[in-house]
Design a protein around this nucleic acid. Structure first.
Lengths: 146, 146
DNA sequence: TACTTTTACTTTAGAATGTAAAGCAATACT
DNA sequence: AGTATTGCTTTACATTCTAAAGTAAAAGTA
């Protein structure tokens, strides 16, 4: 069996989990676009292959970055939600956005505009996290209705 | 020929450049450990394959994240230095370290300690960047000695 | 109830990429 | 002049990724 981690480096160990072309995009879809099912995530612009999506979701779940459950209202659909670990990836994603807006845009002229240039960074992060927590709470209300 | 970018998403476009298991480790070696030659980078703990290292250095150079030159004192050795674009990756790396220390350490008990937990985040980033700029300047002094 | 659709995958075949080891040419060292 | 070092490239093999098709179970529809 393959080792999970290449070295004892803090950075390398994180990249062993999320240092690939898809994991952070899955987190982006969940955190920013409030996607919660396999189908919704599979439908993203970049078109991840379904077997890869399946493998990544399993890996992210095994490291408690996301959770998987079914709601009583639908026995088929799996609901994927970010854990706090996953929600805490927001600052990394934010810094990637800032760097990309400044340094990658020139190489990819089709890139979407960056909406929050004038807004305080930590406010944007906290806001996205809080909005996600509310969303996740609402999804779970269907599990135990009042 | 293959397209550089998968989509117009800001995040995806950045990950198309640095979203793999090696690119950010190369930047780490340069920024944090002041590595500057092929040999020094190839000798890192994680043991990148030399053909991959070669390919990644070329890619990073083509997107102006690093530069490549020879010093007059040594016609053989190539000197790789981070550009400002590359130095600006520091905040991303810092956020990865913070997240990893908090959320990956439990899965990898061999992980190195995180030294700067009590230090202000933006100070650590600015310090690393400033120290790197000084280092790069000193390396280049050999190019045009006083 | 039967039929169709949807969802969440798995399987498979081929392409692309990564790894490990060896090879090589130019420069530097002794 | 001979050896070692550096910065690669090449090669063979293994792993991973992509794209497409297939499948099983639940859900919706007639």
């Amino acid at each position: 069996m393959k080792k999970d981690f290449r070295s004892s480096c803090i950075i390398a160990s994180a990249l062993d989990l999320i240092g690939d072309k898809w994991s952070l995009l899955i987190v982006r879809d969940m955190l920013m676009h409030h996607k919660k099912t396999y189908k919704e995530i599979a439908a993203s612009d970049e078109g991840v292959a379904t077997n890869l999506l399946s493998a990544r979701l399993k890996m992210l779940e095994s490291f408690d970055i996301i959770s998987k459950r079914k709601l009583p209202t639908n026995r088929k659909e799996n609901i994927y939600l970010l854990s706090e670990k996953g929600i805490e990836l927001a600052p990394i994603i934010m810094e990637i956005v800032i760097w990309s807006d400044k340094n990658v845009r020139m190489h990819n002229p089709d890139m979407n505009p960056f909406e929050y240039k004038e807004v305080d960074k930590s406010f944007v992060i906290k806001n996205a996290q809080e909005r996600y927590r509310e969303f996740a709470g609402q999804v779970l209300e269907q599990e135990a209705p009042s």
